[in-house]
Design a protein around this nucleic acid. Sequence first.
DNA 1: TTGAAAGCGCTAACAA
DNA 2: TTGTTAGCGCTTTCAA
Lengths: 354, 354
Amino acid sequence: MKQPNRITISNIAELAGVSKATASLVLNGKGDEYRVSEETQQRILSIAEEHRYQPSFHARALRSSRSHTIGLVLPFLTQFTNASLAKELESLFRNAGIQIIIACSDEDPEQEKIVVNNLLQRQVDGLIVISSNTSDESYSKIHSYVPVVQLGRQIGDSNLPLIMTDATGATANLIQIIAQQQTDEVYYFGGEPMLTPSKQRLEGYKQGLTRANVSVHNEWIRQRNYFSYSGYDMMEEVCNELGRPPKALFTASFSLLEGVLQYLNQNPEMQSGLQHLACFDDHELLDFMPLRIDSIAQDYTALAFNAFTTLMALMEDRPLPSPDKQTIQARIRWRHPESRRLSKLMASDFLHQK
Amino acid sequence: MKQPNRITISNIAELAGVSKATASLVLNGKGDEYRVSEETQQRILSIAEEHRYQPSFHARALRSSRSHTIGLVLPFLTQFTNASLAKELESLFRNAGIQIIIACSDEDPEQEKIVVNNLLQRQVDGLIVISSNTSDESYSKIHSYVPVVQLGRQIGDSNLPLIMTDATGATANLIQIIAQQQTDEVYYFGGEPMLTPSKQRLEGYKQGLTRANVSVHNEWIRQRNYFSYSGYDMMEEVCNELGRPPKALFTASFSLLEGVLQYLNQNPEMQSGLQHLACFDDHELLDFMPLRIDSIAQDYTALAFNAFTTLMALMEDRPLPSPDKQTIQARIRWRHPESRRLSKLMASDFLHQK
DNA sequence: TTGAAAGCGCTAACAA
DNA sequence: TTGTTAGCGCTTTCAA
């Protein structure tokens, strides 16, 4: 399967009776700048069009050491959050003439190293990472020659540019409302405790309880990893311990919620008594669930857009349009009728105070 | 943001006191073949390792006109089906040393043309397309120099290699069981009628009705496009016409089902009377829905794997491992208790006949 | 057993 | 206003 005889800039130049250099200038829109005569320009352009000239990407990349390609590293493409971010980014960068290469780490730091290396070998001009690492050591090195932007998750306490959701704030607001209704107990199921989003969500949970005057019980807090089976396992564990389901439960991710739902589906007797179920991240289908699950919806468009502008600025050596660390507000989707009522109440209280 | 002084093969050669050519040979594992002395080989290899030599991707691509990159064109990354396929393909190709570039067409043939052009410009070595086109004209041309594999959807009656789900068979089986329970009416909501999967699903629907001795009523069949709002609109339309919901309804995609569910959520009075709801494509969350929705689960792993082996064979000019057109069986997820009972009955009948 | 040299397609100094 | 030239980093004859 061999390439057809690609038409090169030399061919075009020859056909137009000019030199490669002139052709290159014109084809790159620098014709006027270098004062190539209008007539020559037209000739070159029309010949190029006629022959459907397409500059060779790799030649250009080799020459200019810019590949017009960036890498996006993420754990799983099948997680709705990641797919949404990828989709938004893909379209933003494509419109800017930049291809984005998606690489999956499967939430595995080793794998992540491999795929990042791969991307660097391809001379990506920039990197957006939703990292599974807890140390930014390697990324800091990389950042010294290829800009790196952290999206959605902070790697340890990295100083690299970061765009993420205000998880603490949103979680605190959500938990506060739930804890006001369910002062006896509010359980928390989380993923890898070392990941920054986990810390923030847990912090938000604690703040929420405190604001509702409910003291934090450590036995309410369970953390494992973000795979859905962990949600299942933790739910099973708690239900067995209590001999009943928890009265209120917040899961720090949608995947964990799926595990919990699976458990409930297999053990329907555990559904009654579970008064409040809520989770971080949102899905349209939650609107049609019998359980009224409150959820936190991240703003993918804003997250992607800010990551885009930040990386573009870095790649073009422009000053950053906004601070290094950017926090995007999330929106809480109230589905539980009582939660909805209370949240409205609180909002109006807030207005009155003003 | 400039690249660090990349270490090139010339550097390595110089440090090892050999020529670029020798270094290249050794670094590409052709040392023995060309009988480079063991000692020289070791020297070159260890120096390369020490300096973490990484060959320049673009130089190599320029020289060999193979980019070790393939393109994957799909409508939306946020659709679970596409994300699942992309994920499987990404890992298969990565393990084979090939990067995959994902490009979204947003289900728009014009956009698709643009992104495909983009990919070709990057000299992808192959193309996997989940196309929104109805004519394979341009792909046929492309296929003459870059192999193209159709995945999940056939473009018109294209002869290009094709891997897809046996939608007709699965849909027929599903509909047959439903129609046996609900002989009065079984509605069908579909997407773009010109797309092959639409035709196959509709064909399966008709076969299923026929097998159940229910005659096809054209007013049961509505087709628009695959966006979820169309599901909503069609549902609204039918409910208004009938003054009640249809007794049984099959949607040709998950997205259409979402629209239907949204309508039902906003018009809860229309939920009673809707005895059977089923759809093409599956989602874990359906297990937790109050409505027992039967669904058809495609086998993403098999689809991706076959697309992978087929494209690899084409790229390496090997004979195809399997026929040009490959059909993958789907699995029906019975959730409605009566459907489940009937389907088991039928399976055992089938065994008895044997 | 190794090296010299050509060239993939492109851009950008520098000349003319 | 346009052309000449020198590489970017690599592979691959061909020659030694």
